[in-house]
Each structure stands twice: as C-alpha cells, then as structure tokens.
Measured scan of single mutants.
Amino acid sequence: SDYEVNVNGIHHRFHNISEELIKFIEEALRRGEDLREIIKKVRELLG
C-alpha cells in the first residue's frame, strides 16, 4: 500500500542519515574533537 511505501521510505531516509551521522561523529572523535563540539556541529548541519 501507499502507506507502507511511505513509512519504508521515511525509515530508509533516516537510516541513511544516521549512518552518515555515525561516520561523521566517529571521524571527529578520532581527530580528538570534544563530543559537545561535535554535537553542536551536528545540530547546525541538521538546521
């Protein structure tokens, strides 16, 4: 049904976003950045 496609589409989009965010955060932590600064950047990215 349309509803299922829609829900799956939304889930898929969020899954991709969270994968990208996790990579972004892991790389920043590897560079020794402060978690609070990383979260601030993530918030800015998400608008």
Rank of each mutant, 00 (worst) to 15 (best):
D2P: 01
D2Y: 08
D2A: 03
Y3E: 00
Y3N: 01
E4V: 07
E4M: 03
E4F: 00
E4A: 03
V5D: 02
V5H: 01
V5R: 01
N6P: 02
N6R: 10
N6D: 09
V7W: 06
V7A: 06
N8K: 07
G9V: 01
G9R: 00
H11L: 14
H11N: 09
H11S: 09
H12W: 02
H12E: 12
R13K: 14
R13A: 13
R13Q: 13
R13Y: 12
F14L: 02
F14H: 00
F14A: 00
F14I: 02
F14Y: 02
H15D: 11
H15F: 04
H15N: 12
H15T: 08
N16W: 03
N16S: 06
I17V: 15
S18K: 05
E19D: 12
E19Q: 13
E19W: 12
E20Q: 14
E20F: 11
E20V: 13
E20A: 12
E20W: 12
L21Y: 06
L21F: 06
K23P: 04
K23L: 11
K23M: 10
K23E: 13
K23D: 11
F24I: 12
F24V: 09
F24P: 02
F24K: 08
F24T: 09
I25N: 00
I25T: 02
E26Q: 08
E26R: 06
E26T: 09
E27G: 12
E27S: 10
E27V: 11
E27K: 08
A28K: 09
L29V: 14
L29A: 08
L29R: 07
R30M: 14
R30E: 13
R30G: 11
R30Q: 14
R30V: 13
G32T: 09
G32E: 14
G32Q: 15
E33R: 11
E33G: 06
E33L: 13
E33H: 12
D34S: 07
D34I: 08
L35K: 02
L35R: 02
L35M: 10
L35I: 15
R36L: 09
R36N: 14
E37N: 12
E37R: 08
I38Y: 02
I38E: 01
I38H: 02
I38V: 13
I38C: 02
I39K: 04
I39R: 04
K40Q: 09
K40H: 13
K40C: 01
K40W: 06
K40V: 15
K41N: 13
K41H: 13
R43D: 15
E44A: 10
E44L: 10
E44G: 12
L45D: 08
L45C: 05
L45Q: 14
L45H: 11
L45A: 13
L45G: 10
L46A: 12
L46V: 15
G47S: 13
G47C: 04
G47V: 11
